[in-house]
Amino acid sequence: MSSDGIDATRTAPAAAGGPLAAVEPVPGVAKPDPILTASHIRRSFGGLTAVNVDHLEVQRGTITALIGPNGAGKSTLFNLLTGFDKPNEGTWSFQGQPLNGVAGHRVARRGMVRTFQLTKALTRLTVLENMLLAAPGQVGEGFFGAFGWWMWRRQEQANRERAMELLARFKLDAKKDDIAGSLSGGQRKLLEMARALMVNPSMVMLDEPMAGVNPALVQSLLGHITALRDEGTTVLFVEHDMDVIMGISDWIVVLAQGQVIAEGRPSDVRSDQQVIDAYLGTQHDEPQGAKTEEKP
């Protein structure tokens, strides 16, 4: 992908003069208005410590990228923060409320919605049904409420309209009546992201949202993500494509072997020697190295 393409669509990161301008680029630094705060999160699988984060804050209303080599613990950290896995120790809170021991679905209801690295399309439901399922606070969702169709019919109609708008944004509106299992891999990624937005989250956590999406569509996805931020949604995403990361992020957190080894604005991270050693290092000499980094 050419980096000119990125430049054409990206909007300037909010950090340029934004709330993160004065923040010191050191690991675990405090942010002026954190939406998510995590401390001493540790998760071991047997002898392997997959995640060991001392302190991490995510600034509200920004796009934060989480990067790091394969196996760095990014997906595991996502699982821990969203209640899909339990840490051995650690505390974390979202919008000021502690999330320790809160079940995954409750985390989502509080406004933190995640997607999965391995896409989870609901294959035998149609694309539109996938979207409608995600709508929050449905009257007809309760066992007894389900029988009172006159009570939820109007709400269903409103949800349908919102779902169609989102699907149109992600170029899936023509597919609305196809079953999700018939979508291609990239289309499933798009559907999963659209579906997460259907929940009206205050923070979305996207695990490699661009993997397998074609370059032209990546451009418009980036547009959507910046638009989301501009509407006030906080975005935390995992990505391996450095052009994408540098172009769109307000803040970058670098994870290696489970630890935050650096964080800062794109310009800070790009020149950080530790990051170059751990992750970016080979990129300048052998461009293909960025994605298949061996663990140091």
Partner: peptide, 30 residues
């Protein structure tokens, strides 16, 4: 009863669980 339930949002969640429970949970459904 089955027909009414399965045509309602409740039924949609139920079918979603059949397909992938974690996905449904990530969308805020218990």
């Amino acid at each position: 009863m089955t027909a009414m339930l399965m045509r309602s949002p409740w039924g949609r969640v139920i079918k979603g669980i059949r397909e992938d429970e974690d996905a449904v949970r990530a969308l805020g459904k218990d």
